[in-house]
Nucleic acid binder design. Structure first.
Length: 485
RNA sequence: GCGGAGUUAGUUUAGUCUGGUAUGACGUCAGCUUCCCAAGCUGAAGUUCACGGGUUCAAAUCCCGUACUCCGCACCA
């Protein structure tokens, strides 16, 4: 289904909508999750915990969103997470300084260079605005981090641009107190903040967004000692290096050298298995190996997990081999010890990161799950039952003759255990349609026969089939059907 | 940020050129009816027309500014 239809559903059915929308000064790039969106997000994260955190025995933490300046001096974000930009004084167009200079003069100035170097290059080569021939103002640094002032003195701090910095900073304590052993995954779900120049397309390009990040700490000399590798060696992945993506198993990817080692292969494998279970069509996915220029400043090897949607390929996860970049920088800056013992060996661990964009993943789940059932004139959100915000609709065929009371009773009995939605009003078909649109996999209906023999009908969302069951069976049928795989 | 196009109820939309306080559909709510797939009937609520300013006796409509959305450019850890 296309972006427009997903957007309309999101607005009409409470998945997500713009923040602060009643005010004229609402800024772009901020969106709220409504009740159905939160339901989906919570269940998505539950699946993430099952398939990655628990499966691999990782630790999960919940760190601060505001972090001190030193953290980002060490991480490199204050220096590298900024673009040198130049603005035309005549037409107000903004350009990247380094790119504009390189384009016109072939002089390559690194983006982290002193700003005066850009100004010099511009004046020496008489570079003018490519649009209107106007003069440029002085080069400025545009940092993508939000700065905040702490306390009455407004001490400098920043909203984190990625959640993982707390994981690196906390690593020494966690390793010691949680009896860590390499390889050790530490994970975190939370908000990150980036001051994007042009946020766009609702959940796909936000200024405040959710990440689910995993940092796996490992001994760099043992990257091919991974016992669990067998679990995923036959998992099929699509991997793209230069040209077309190839469809291979993890084992083949490792043997052909496309994947650098067993360690990385294992995590690409379990990540793929996770996404299969979200209902995203993984035959439309690829791991794209990034070239030198595309990689983040801290990455040694990088694979982006991308999925094809109606608006093109969308990056859902960044998998970066960050080596000891982060631990070394934090050790140097803080003068704390980040080495640990791995057996008899003293080692500064390397890090492989699985940095997942939650918002983009949720959008993709919606887009891949939504279908237009023309035959029955309905829109159906065919979510996996365990991800559905509402598990079951509890409906009375009509309100009178005691059916309402009977229905209320059934709802009362199951509402703590399941996400159940009680509905008495309107035509029954209309109520079924509404449940279809929010992806409720089941609807049970109380009719006149219920009063005689305690049976109800249970309707399946995708097939619209109905079967008659005894009320006493409902709990076990639902439990089984909505269980995580 | 730049350029273009837009913004009227929960959604979709008429009206904007030619100024006279807004139209339909769907949806929502209540009731009746039907009694298992968006049926029908009756009734109701909901838009100070994105926001701010100007012109005018009078502005959804004309003018200016701002924000947001979409498309393209640029950017994208």
């Amino acid at each position: 289904m296309d972006y427009e239809t997903v957007m309309k559903l999101a607005l009409e059915r409470g998945f997500y909508f713009p923040s602060c929308e009643v005010y004229a000064d609402a800024q772009a790039g901020f969106w709220e999750y409504g009740p159905t969106g939160v339901g989906l997000k919570n269940k998505f994260l539950q699946l993430w915990r099952r398939e990655l955190i628990r499966r691999d025995g990782m630790l999960e933490i919940d760190g601060s969103q505001i972090m001190s300046k030193s953290v980002f001096e060490a991480s490199g974000h204050l220096g590298n997470f900024a673009d040198p930009i130049i603005k035309c004084s005549k037409c107000n167009s903004t350009f990247r300084a380094d790119k504009t200079i390189a384009e016109i003069t072939k002089i390559e100035i690194p983006e982290s260079a002193d700003l005066i170097e850009f100004d010099n290059a511009i004046s020496q080569n008489n570079i003018k605005c490519q649009k209107c021939k106007g003069d440029f103002e002085k080069t400025k640094n545009f940092n993508m981090m939000f700065k905040v002032g702490i306390g009455p003195e407004e001490e400098e701090a920043y909203l984190r641009p990625e959640t993982c910095q707390s994981i690196f900073v906390d690593f020494p304590r966690l390793y010691k107190t949680m009896r860590g052993k390499l390889p050790l995954g530490i994970a975190q779900v939370g908000k990150s903040f980036r001051n994007e120049i042009a946020p766009r397309q609702s959940l796909l390009r936000l200024r405040e967004f959710y990440q689910a990040e995993i940092e796996v700490f490992c001994n760099p000399t043992k990257l091919d000692v991974v016992e669990k590798f067998e679990e995923i060696q036959d998992v099929i992945i699509r991997i793209q290096t230069d040209s077309e993506p190839v469809v291979i198993t993890c084992k083949e990817g490792l043997e052909s050298g496309v994947i650098p080692n067993k360690f990385v292969a294992y995590y690409l494998g379990i990540l793929t298995e996770f996404y299969e279970k979200t209902g995203i069509d993984v035959t439309k996915s690829r791991f794209r190996k990034l070239g030198e220029k595309e990689k983040a400043f801290y990455a040694e090897v990088a694979f982006d997990f991308e999925v094809e949607t109606t608006i093109g390929w969308l990056e859902l996860v960044a998998c970066n081999y960050r080596s000891d970049y982060d631990l070394t920088s934090h050790a140097t800056k803080s003068k704390e010890k980040f080495e640990i013992m791995d057996g008899d060996e003293k080692v500064l661990p390397h890090v492989f990161e699985i940095s997942m964009g939650i918002d983009r993943s949720l959008y993709t789940i919606l887009e891949h799950s939504l279908r237009d059932d023309k035959e029955h004139e309905r829109i159906v959100l065919s979510l996996k039952p365990y991800l559905s915000p509402t598990h079951v609709g509890i409906l009375s065929l009509v309100k009178k003759d005691g059916l309402k009371e009977k229905t209320d009773q059934i709802h009362l009995n199951i509402k703590r255990k399941f996400d159940a939605f009680l509905d008495h009003s309107g035509a029954i078909g209309r109520r079924y349609r509404r449940l279809d649109e929010i992806g409720a996999p089941f609807a049970v209906t109380v009719d006149h026969q219920t009063l005689e023999d305690d049976t109800i009908t249970i309707r399946k969302r995708d097939s619209m089939e109905q079967t008659r069951i005894n009320i006493s069976e409902l709990d076990s049928i639902l439990s089984e059907s909505i269980a995580f795989p």
